[in-house]
Design a protein around this nucleic acid. Structure first.
Lengths: 169, 169
DNA sequence: CACACCCGGTGGTAAACTGCAACCAGTCTC
DNA sequence: GAGACTGGTTGCAGTTTACCACCGGGTGTG
């Protein structure tokens, strides 16, 4: 069931919180956005925080209704659904970037999980914009941007950080 | 009671959400930050969304424990407590600004409540920085910054928007 | 046709969150 | 000293959220 349309007030911050102001919604978006998870099972089993299947199901439904996520059939596997970001959720990149920076400054983050936030912070708005262009290519079918891939750069930094911590791997 | 220290993961976004990822915490911060509310009763009765007293009490306690808010005795009134922002919560300004911009773009905001978000958006990072300096002066006792007051500018825009909607007063 | 995988849904239970209203004791005002 | 105001607290009920485990039908694979 769709939850009651409370609409406490017309304040943009309040309305934003009514959409993404819970523990899981932004984490799901983060995993689709940065983790490249596109299927239910990927989001479920590769979740760093261990989301439950019914919660994931519920959030994907909500996010779809709110226009932050779309679902489409997977041509490779007739039962699979592919979840994609929309322009609306892609424009959350600056929010996530700032939220990550803030967490990195004040909270007990782990090094390997915050390295992406660090790269995004150092890259600044220019990098975010490039990242958003890349996401539009991946999720909306837009033209692939020219420059080097931001996603690859983030993943590379992550792998380097993991390697740094377990050199003998 | 302090809620269980779950710490689902060390991801900065996750940790940030564990601190401010609920419906009310950011609204309380918003009211202290933009609305100039410093006392319990002000936060309670002038809340746009109508927060309940026990919820407000709980959030103020949590935010204090998390280091986003401090409380101090009011010399004017021996029973009153003055709530202040900290450097940690002042640095949420960019997050709130982006969240407001995002809401303004995609959600059914009301004109008079989103005018501040619009001013902040148009002012960009430079204006945010000036606003943060001003907040440091108000809440942390820092030196009053030189330029014109951002808070006054926001309030003025708000009043003008209200006037525009109800010209006859 | 077995078999493992895939997308979820269900049921049960516990905890958290929320709203409402009443209440309390200290404090300022007149 | 009466009355209003202060910062909260408490109790209760309803709703939401959460976790856990299991199930169930469709689907690709050998």
């Amino acid at each position: 069931m769709a939850r009651s349309a409370t609409l406490r007030s017309g304040c943009p911050i309040n309305l934003s919180l009514e959409v993404i102001g819970d523990h899981w919604s932004l984490l799901v978006i983060r995993d689709i956005m940065f983790g490249g998870r596109r299927h239910f099972r990927e989001l479920l089993t590769e979740s760093e925080e261990g989301i439950a299947s019914n919660i994931l199901s519920d959030r994907l439904k909500r996010l779809t209704e709110a226009g932050l996520v779309t679902r489409a059939a997977d041509p490779q596997h007739r039962q699979k659904q592919i979840y994609s970001l929309t322009e609306q959720s892609i424009q959350l990149v600056p929010v996530l970037a700032h939220l990550g920076s803030w967490g990195r400054r004040f909270l007990p983050v782990s090094a390997e999980l915050s390295i992406r936030a660090q790269v995004l912070e150092e890259g600044g708005p220019a990098l975010w914009e490039a990242f958003m262009e890349e996401l539009r290519a991946i999720h909306l079918g837009a033209k692939q941007p020219a420059g080097p891939s931001v996603l690859e750069r983030l993943d590379e930094a992550y792998r380097a950080e993991v390697e740094r911590q377990t050199p003998g791997g």
